[in-house]
């Protein structure tokens, strides 16, 4: 039964080996997509190049469908999957800060690791900034922990919260993503670089 780790197929130390291997796959596809360069990532926010949106939502849809069908066919116990608790207001504020930081800094934490791996100096400075921001958060945490832990909602998934069957919501997200991809292709034609800097291989 999946997830294997939760059903004690192996221990935590073996899990670390899987962590490293899964990380290699993660880093590989981030770099393949072009996420090792801030110029390509930031172009998303000027409608020049919507690769960030396309890759992210294709990945979300792929994993969402995989988890959904594995659980429908009884191969995976979805209740054993880790879910991060929702603290809605701090998450909204944190999300906005992250968005502003994204367009100023040019990366997010994961993509900056890939930028470092491929020699991007700005990626190295960005990671330095992430360390700094985390340290500042740690130092001021005693002052802001009231806000940081406000509006707790526990582990809440959207099918439960909106009272919509899991399968219907999965289907709706797929439709939304397909609509989004069509809009992204249209926007790139309208606002994108006239001559693509780098052609895509198909």
């Amino acid at each position: 039964m999946m997830p294997y780790f939760k059903f004690d197929y192996f221990g935590a130390d073996t899990g670390l080996v899987f962590a490293f291997i899964i990380g290699i796959g993660f880093g590989f596809f981030l770099e393949r997509a072009g996420f090792g360069t801030a110029k390509k990532l930031a172009a998303q926010f000027y409608f020049k190049d919507l690769t960030v949106f396309k890759v992210m939502f294709t990945a979300i849809v792929t994993a969402m469908l995989g988890v959904y069908f594995l659980s429908v066919f009884g191969l995976m116990d979805i209740t054993m999957v880790n879910v991060i608790d929702t603290y809605i207001v701090p998450q909204i504020v944190g999300g906005l800060l992250l968005g502003v930081g994204f367009v100023i800094g040019g990366y997010c934490p994961g993509t900056s690791v890939v930028a470092c791996a491929t020699g991007k100096i700005d990626g190295v400075f960005f990671i330095g900034g992430v360390f700094l921001g985390t340290f500042i958060y740690g130092e001021v945490y005693p002052l802001i922990q009231g806000f940081a832990n406000s509006t707790p909602m526990g582990k809440v998934l959207m099918p439960t919260y909106f009272n919509i069957p899991y399968g219907i919501l999965v289907f709706a997200v797929v439709l939304m993503a397909l609509g989004g991809f069509a809009a992204a292709e249209w926007a790139e034609k309208k606002f994108g670089y006239k001559k693509p800097e780098v052609a895509h291989e198909d």
Binding site: G95, F102, G106, G129, V130, I136
Partner: peptide, 8 residues
């Protein structure tokens, strides 16, 4: 930007 992200 990195610091904002780390904090956020």
């Amino acid at each position: 930007g990195g610091a904002l992200m780390g904090f956020g």
